[in-house]
Simulated assay, not measured.
Amino acid sequence: MPLTHISLRAGKPEDYRQAIFDSLYRAMHETFNVPEDNQFMTISEHDAANFRYGASFLGIARSDDLVFIQITANNTRTLDQKKVLFRRIAALLGESPGIRPEDVFVNLVEVAKENWSLGNGLAQYA
């Protein structure tokens, strides 16, 4: 049950943003076995004054097209699954909407299954 928050510089068209949603969901579906209707994602756009990044941290040449992706998910995946997810996200975002792999920044936050309420005030996974 991933919850995904995406942050990017303001100004990209709607089809670009929708392509990010579609590519991210596809990567999670393929590598994390996320079910078909399990799409909970937001995009936040930021003007230049409110979007800062290390342009060359760890020797990676980032641009203003950088996308921050934070995925909160159950702590049930292996290290290999996580590595495959990261590679698949970068590959699919490269295909659509055309984001360079250097500009794909992913942070996975893992939580215990009982830390979710998906509606109705219930802990569905507890």
Rank of each mutant, 00 (worst) to 15 (best):
N38Y: 04
W116A: 04
V67K: 02
E95K: 07
I89C: 05
L8N: 05
I60T: 12
G98M: 12
N50M: 01
F21G: 03
D15P: 02
F32E: 06
I6T: 15
S23A: 14
E45H: 11
N120E: 07
V67H: 02
T78D: 03
D64G: 11
F21N: 06
L92E: 09
Q81P: 08
L8C: 09
E114Q: 08
E30D: 15
N50F: 08
I20K: 04
S7L: 01
Q124M: 03
P35N: 06
N107P: 05
E36K: 06
D22T: 14
T72L: 10
A27Q: 08
D47R: 07
A90I: 08
A19W: 10
A90Y: 09
G119M: 13
P35A: 08
V67T: 06
L3F: 13
G11E: 02
T31G: 05
A126F: 02
P101Q: 09
I89V: 15
H5L: 03
T31S: 10
K113D: 06
N115L: 15
G59I: 04
F51A: 02
P101M: 09
M41H: 14
N115C: 14
K113F: 02
P2S: 01
F40S: 09
T4L: 03
T72I: 12
R77C: 01
R17A: 03
I60L: 10
H29W: 07
T78P: 08
G98P: 13
P97D: 10
N74F: 12
G11V: 07
V106C: 08
R17T: 01
R52L: 15
Q70T: 14
E102P: 01
V109G: 00
S117T: 13
A49Y: 11
F51S: 00
F32V: 09
D65L: 00
Y25C: 01
N50E: 05
A61Y: 01
L24R: 09
T76Q: 10
E114G: 11
A19D: 13
L122W: 00
P101L: 07
I99D: 01
I60D: 05
S96H: 11
R26G: 03
A10H: 08
I43H: 07
T42H: 00
T42C: 00
